[in-house]
Design a protein around this nucleic acid. Structure first.
Lengths: 208, 208
DNA sequence: TTAGATACTATACAAAAGTATACTTGTCAA
DNA sequence: TTGACAAGTATACTTTTGTATAGTATCTAA
């Protein structure tokens, strides 16, 4: 994007601040009044900012401008899934407990959801209370961490397809691997998605 | 908040969608046109939504309405700090590489920043590439993980104040603890803040 | 049963707001 | 030195837009 002049930078900053405080963009006259100039001068600035790609404008509409770098474009509302029960619609509203606005750069693709870790089977990589980001997909590569639905219960495990069938392994050695014959797995095991990220808060956890 | 009627819920949903797409709120007439009613009817709905606390309005202003549950209120722009050099202003613009919009519920307090983990000293809890959330503070409780500036270099360590002085310990046993006499520590060691959270992306990391 | 909210129609008015016309001044690169 | 851009003044015109007036009809809880 073309660089801005100092004056244009100030105008853009004013618009950002105005939107943040008011929830709607300023009028040409409000920009003009803030800088103590005539409406025409302010309109010139807006035209320059539009020409340089820093904001969109709808000609003729009052307050018809919006920032090119809007929060709505930087942020994605990711659903937090609660208890997962068997039966299809994973992202159906009955499973969604809440949503969290996360930076778009963390969310690749559409079918992503958050899940609160409850068990200890992936310790120490994933601990109870962690929030894992999961990309919904029916298969994962060998050794990747997946959300797996076994007997109507969702768990986090590494998935290995082997000659004998399917093996689900936790990182925690205290948990024995689960083994399924190929036909058995097809019936009892459903991979819901791949773990693509974790968020952990240390607050409320004691120090070592 | 008072419950909405079905019609009011639809109007609110339209306003949310409109703001998300356009970047500015709709006019009374745009709401009216969308529902195929007269401007007066739409204005009645807006008045009801305001009365019930779902949106703010500035009387007389075009598009002078904003949602009570705005993204701006749910999200905080947290600075990502790059190379930290000695000398005071930690959150000065020369240290801030970028910012990331994070949910307000993750950010307690004001003086919070993000730091990319580079070393291995806190492995396996914190790995290179992780993004840690740090609350800027000059002291931490015994055993808490801190961002510590030693010899003009920022590292992550657990901090223990002991009889002999200050001990900085990584979780990784391959790293020997750093010990400082009390007066030595005051000169060479500066605690920049407490690690309060981590975000880790698994993409780009190989499976086990 | 009556007051109060909901949900509208239809018309009209005045303020708010974008924009056009006509100029001026200064800077800076081709 | 000329033309493009930046930054402005001053006045005016025309839409856009919120709101007021005056009604109608339905439903619901005191």
């Amino acid at each position: 994007m073309k660089p801005l002049t100092e004056r244009q930078r100030l105008v853009l900053a004013f618009i950002e601040e105005f939107c943040r405080r008011q929830g709607y963009p300023p009028t040409v006259r409000e920009v003009a009044a803030h800088f103590g100039v005539q409406p025409r001068a302010a309109a010139d600035h807006l035209a320059a900012l539009k020409r340089k790609g820093y904001l969109h404008r709808e000609p003729g509409l009052s307050r018809g401008l919006s920032l090119a770098s809007r929060l709505e474009e930087q942020v994605v509302e990711v659903p937090i899934v609660g208890r997962i029960a068997a039966g299809r619609p994973l992202l159906a509203s009955e499973h969604v407990e809440d949503t969290l606005p996360l930076p778009r750069s963390w969310v690749h693709g559409e079918e992503v959801f958050l899940l609160k870790v409850t068990g200890d089977s992936m310790s120490p990589l994933l601990l109870p209370g962690d929030l894992v980001m999961v990309k919904a997909q029916p298969r994962v590569a060998r050794g990747e961490i997946a959300v797996v639905l076994v007997n109507d219960e969702a768990t986090l495990k590494r998935v290995y397809e082997e000659a004998g069938g399917l093996v689900l392994k936790g990182d925690n050695p205290e948990f024995a691997p689960l083994r399924f014959a190929r036909d058995e797995a097809a019936e009892l095991v459903q991979i819901l998605g791949k773990v693509v990220g974790v968020y952990r808060s240390f607050e409320g956890r004691g120090p070592r």
